[in-house]
């Protein structure tokens, strides 16, 4: 791991057709830091998150993870696209948690966890299973090892999804509105898991609408609107004392 920031974005631009979704994002996430991103829907938060592990390609600017460009290699002043193999390799070091969990429905919780370690990291089955059991225990689901996703509640599914990402031993975790699809009474159990993960020193980028979580757990808070960062700073400062009019009007609607 290099000493620099875990995620570094410089003037990141991204368009879908004629729609410009990201219009120059600059930010840094340092190791062991938790960055929360808030903003109205369509502001580009999720798109930016997906750029970090190259699920989306950026059009302009520079985006790097752990000191290496995402999706490209620079030689001299030329950029070379990375071959699929290397893109996969880099993705395997970044965990991602989705709004709709996206667990593999034809596999049990345990099978969901061991799939990538065995196929991608070429771990032995016994090692993968042992680690998966430990992780399921850590997210409080040791008794659901052999349950299929459909047999679990939304909160349990999301905790399995977090464990699945952790099974790859990522150096960075991306959360894309991890509690937005959950019934209100299930949000807490997922946030608890994420809080503990932050305490253990995981570097996290969290797109969320949970202001309480952002305030307690986040090291930085970024407010995005219209594809740009409107305001960033310590969560407490931004939430309690927003400097920008747009931030104020957004917060007045959600708080």
């Amino acid at each position: 791991m290099s000493a620099g920031p875990m995620v570094k974005a410089e003037a990141v631009h991204k368009s879908f057709g004629r729609l410009e979704v990201l219009r120059g994002i600059d930010l840094e996430v340092n190791p062991k830091e938790v960055m929360c991103m808030i903003g109205p829907s369509g502001s580009g938060k999720s798109t930016f998150l997906r750029c970090i592990n190259h699920l989306e390609k950026i059009d302009a600017g520079r985006l790097s993870v752990d000191g290496e460009l995402v999706g490209y290699r620079q030689r001299g002043d030329k950029l070379y696209e990375l071959p699929d193999r290397e893109v996969c390799q880099k993705r395997s070091e970044i965990g991602m948690v989705f709004q709709h969990f996206n667990l593999f429905p034809h596999m049990t919780a345990l099978e969901n966890l061991i799939e990538a370690p065995i196929r991608v990291k070429k771990a032995s089955r016994s090692t993968a299973v042992a680690y998966a059991r430990a992780l399921l225990d850590r997210v409080g689901l040791a008794d659901k090892t052999n349950a299929y996703p459909k047999q679990l509640s939304g909160g349990q599914q999301q905790r399995v999804a977090i464990a699945r990402a952790l099974a790859m031993d990522p150096k960075l975790m991306l959360f894309d509105e991890p509690t937005s699809a959950l019934d209100p009474e299930l949000v807490g159990e997922v946030l608890d898991v994420m809080r503990r993960l932050a305490q253990d020193g995981m570097t996290m980028v969290v797109v969320t609408h949970e202001m309480g979580f952002a305030r307690e757990v986040g090291d930085t808070l970024v407010f995005m609107d219209g594809g740009v960062i409107v305001e960033a700073g310590k969560p407490r400062d931004v939430l309690a004392n927003p400097q920008q009019e747009r931030t104020r009007s957004f917060l007045s609607k959600v708080l």
Binding site: D84, C88, Q89, E93, N102, F104, H106, R119, V120, R164
Partner: peptide
């Protein structure tokens, strides 16, 4: 098969062949 399945598999670092054979085709 839902797009989210492909994305989840990609995010875990699986290549096209692996995600086809292990994730998409079984579903």
């Amino acid at each position: 098969v839902e797009q989210g399945q492909t994305e989840a598999a990609q995010a875990l670092g699986m290549n096209r062949l692996q995600l086809m054979r292990r994730i998409v085709l079984p579903q």
